[in-house]
């Protein structure tokens, strides 16, 4: 079974974010980068499926040179090889543009399963995986927590997936392979990186593809206007008075001002 995991590199969670001068993105200098967390869960799911059923896990990621480090990290955790789509203009592409790049790299691999994180921690569009499925013309499901596979070796392998719904409800779905699943965080326990993994990763294949060789970039359908920091509004009120009166005022305010009661 061949599983492809599409991964995005995002700013480290602790990174101090500053808006770039053109307000179209963030200042990248001094940023540190990490693997998008939902993608880390997609990778973990893929590795566990491989441990159970055998096969190969291939990483695909698009972005500038620095993305190589994140692919190596995935190789260190146990993926078999990586494909790096070198693209310096990722920020200028919309979800469709990125999905087109990924689709072009994934297609010739003809995988049995494509996993990717539900959404990215930076932009949070939640679209790329689903568009990728459409471009590949494959069935897809989103918000997946766990995947089971029956008769993994046959071309008719079936997937049973646990899908998260609202309010603690889950849905169990069955679907054929090949398929694209977008993975929700928290379905598995992530593994930590090990020295042995890093050493072994050094000898694993990491192929680079030039984005321009994968076809012309589509003009973005959705255009980013500008990004701003959230407005800080001081809306804390301290209600004075004895507990009883204060509580009454609070209820009144919740009703009339906040309108939550």
């Amino acid at each position: 079974m061949k599983i492809i995991v599409a991964i995005k590199q995002v700013p480290e969670r602790d990174a101090p974010l500053r808006i770039a001068s053109d307000a179209k993105g963030i200042e990248e200098r001094e940023l540190q980068w990490a693997m998008n967390e939902p993608d880390a869960y997609a990778l973990e799911e893929a590795l566990q499926l491989k441990e159970k059923h055998g096969g190969e896990v291939v990483i695909v990621s698009a972005g500038p040179e620095r993305v190589g480090a994140t692919i190596r990290e995935a190789l260190a955790k146990g993926a078999d090889r990586g494909i790096h789509i070198v693209a310096d203009d990722l920020a200028a592409r919309d979800a469709l543009g990125v999905a087109q790049l990924l689709a072009a790299a994934v297609k010739p691999e003809s995988p049995d399963l494509v996993l990717t994180g539900l959404q990215s921690e930076d932009l949070g569009l939640g679209q790329t995986g689903v568009i990728l499925a459409e471009l590949l013309n494959l069935p897809h499901a989103s918000l997946i927590l766990q995947v089971e596979i029956s008769s993994a070796d046959s071309p008719q392998a079936q997937i049973k997936a646990k899908r998260e719904l609202e309010e603690g409800w889950f849905q169990s779905i069955e679907m054929p392979t090949p398929a694209v699943l977008t993975i929700q965080s928290g379905g598995n326990k992530l593994r930590y990186a090990t020295l042995m993994g890093i050493k072994r990763a050094k000898t694993k294949e990491l192929r680079t593809l030039d984005a321009t060789s994968l076809g012309a970039a589509a003009a973005p359908v959705a255009v980013l206007d500008k990004i701003t920091l959230p407005q800080k509004k001081k809306s804390t009120q301290i209600i004075p008075g004895a507990a009883k009166e204060a509580a009454a005022t609070l209820v009144e305010k919740l009703k009339s001002e906040a309108r939550v009661l």
Binding site: E12, R13, D14, A34, L190, Y192, A193
Partner: peptide, 8 residues
């Protein structure tokens, strides 16, 4: 370990 891989 994961917290320290990502955080500080």
């Amino acid at each position: 370990f994961l917290a320290l891989e990502k955080g500080s």
